[in-house]
Nucleic acid binder design. Structure first.
Lengths: 146, 146
DNA sequence: TATGTATTGTTGGTGACGCCAACATTGGAA
DNA sequence: TTCCAATGTTGGCGTCACCAACAATACATA
């Protein structure tokens, strides 16, 4: 394997990005195995945990643009994993609901994704995994503001 | 700020991906400020550290697909940051060389990127930063094989 | 009450990255 | 000599992040 420039290797942003690429590949493979993908999983997760919600709320919860939520819901609704009905109390909004089949699909994706975490963190001890996720969570919280 | 599903928050792959998104945004802004972008920086870095190289070698060093190296070199050569000459010893290959101006551009990008590291890791202590980059480096080394 | 401001869903588009298939040319191994 | 591998190139695709504009609707405040 050819050597990577130290200029890159020394930069946390490079390491983060490259590890994220591998993580994304693992996750995408896991998702594909059950016929879904990242955006779908995000929406299904939010619906399962917080119940029915408007599209804008969904987007804010899972860090997706409004327009991407629309496209994703079109696909999910096409597979009957989700239902979209107008909100009678606010006619700008839709109320998005998780269907039984959607919940089942989420469960399948979840199992695939659990395996991914193990593969991703294989070289780290349990204590190291905790330390890593703790620091990442702090970084994310910090950057989600401002 | 709306709450994110625990299903996501609990997954290292999610945290990694989201932090990487913020890191990428910071880096892209820094790069844009000096008129460049990630792919350019990778190529310039490899040329600066290892000297002239073939396109295939460049791609392997900085984890870029052959075809993406071609496009990037077209742009870099268009700005005279790089020169592409046929290799007399192997007529399949090109020898790519960093120009004076290319080295200057690299230096500018480097300064921008150094600032990004600080912004990215702001919430972490020096010891934590080391621990984080150490673990990320191990993960990357592990996943670069197989 | 009227008027302006914000939010929502939607459409359509852009860009960075990562990746794949195919091809002609060339080098090297069997 | 024959087959296999590597190289540069073209052209395409998918995911994710993001932006601008629009009409409809809600809300605040003057």
């Amino acid at each position: 394997m050819e050597k990577t420039p130290a200029r890159l290797t020394a930069k946390p942003s490079w390491l983060l990005g490259q590890v994220a690429v591998h993580a994304h590949r693992l996750a995408a493979d896991g998702f594909a195995a059950v016929g879904t993908r990242g955006y779908h999983y995000r929406i299904l997760s939010a619906l399962d945990e917080f119940g029915a919600a408007s599209q804008a709320d969904l987007g804010r919860r899972v860090a997706m643009d409004r327009s991407d939520v629309v496209a994703t819901l079109n696909e999910l609704a096409g597979q009957a994993l989700v239902e979209r009905t107008p909100d009678p109390d606010d006619r700008r909004r839709n109320i998005v609901t998780l269907t039984k089949e959607g919940a089942r699909q989420l469960k399948r994706a979840d199992q695939a994704l659990d395996q991914v975490q193990d593969d991703l963190l294989a070289p780290l001890s349990a204590a190291e995994r905790d330390a890593l996720t703790g620091m990442l969570a702090r970084l994310l919280a910090h950057h989600r503001q401002d």
